Amino acid sequence: MSFENPSREEIKQILLNAGNIAVVGLSDKTDRTSYMVAQALQSNGYRIIPVNPTVSGEILGEKVYASLSDIPEPVDIVNVFRRSEQTPPVAEEAVKIGARVLWLQLGIFNEEAYEIAAKGGLTVIMDRCIKVEDSILIGKRS
């Protein structure tokens, strides 16, 4: 399979229909990109579900889960802040939990992760920042 990101209109529809966004690799450090992106999404009305096995407690007021499989509710988008080579197992877990979208952040691209997720029925977006796409396509929600 040859990868191509969905069209801007398709991405807009994904964002408009998204509720729960699991953020894999979300840091509890406020100066990290993952934290700033998740905070911006949260302030624009998305429900953020932190996934980080090295952090316990809460990030941005939400309970942190060690893995996607530990999340007790449906996930629309799995947004990934991990190195490219670490994404295939995340794709497998995203398929297992029935997520709708695997979104690899800006600078993250992995053909194997794409193939795993696509074969599992997920829409895949790679090498794009979800915060930037949300700002461009949706803007501030009232």
Rank of each mutant, 00 (worst) to 15 (best):
S2E: 15
S2M: 12
N5V: 03
N5I: 01
N5K: 02
P6I: 05
E9C: 05
E10N: 09
E10W: 04
I11H: 02
I11W: 02
Q13G: 00
L16D: 08
A18G: 04
I21Q: 04
I21F: 08
I21N: 05
L26N: 06
L26E: 09
D28M: 12
D28A: 14
K29I: 13
K29Q: 14
K29F: 13
D31W: 12
T33Q: 11
S34F: 08
Y35C: 10
V37T: 06
V37A: 03
Q39N: 08
Q39Y: 04
A40Q: 14
L41W: 07
Q42H: 03
Q42K: 14
N44Y: 09
Y46D: 01
I49R: 10
P50S: 11
P50F: 11
V51F: 09
N52M: 07
N52F: 09
T54I: 00
V55E: 05
V55Y: 07
S56L: 02
G61A: 04
E62A: 13
E62W: 04
V64Q: 11
Y65R: 07
S67A: 15
S69N: 08
S69Q: 06
D70P: 11
D70V: 09
E73Q: 15
P74L: 10
P74F: 12
P74N: 11
V75M: 05
V78I: 00
N79M: 00
V80K: 00
S84T: 05
E85A: 03
Q86R: 13
T87N: 05
T87M: 03
P88C: 08
P89G: 08
V90S: 09
V90Q: 10
V90N: 11
A91T: 02
E92G: 15
E93A: 15
V95G: 12
G98N: 07
A99R: 13
R100Q: 13
R100P: 05
L102N: 07
W103F: 04
G107D: 01
G107M: 00
G107Y: 07
I108L: 06
F109K: 14
A113L: 03
E115Q: 13
E115W: 02
K119D: 15
G120R: 10
G121L: 09
L122W: 10
L122G: 13
T123W: 06
T123Y: 10
V124D: 08
I125W: 05
I125M: 05
I125R: 01
D127A: 02
R128W: 06
C129A: 03
I130M: 14
K131E: 14
K131H: 15
V132P: 11
D134M: 02
S135E: 13
L137P: 03
I138V: 12
G139I: 00
R141Q: 07
S142M: 11
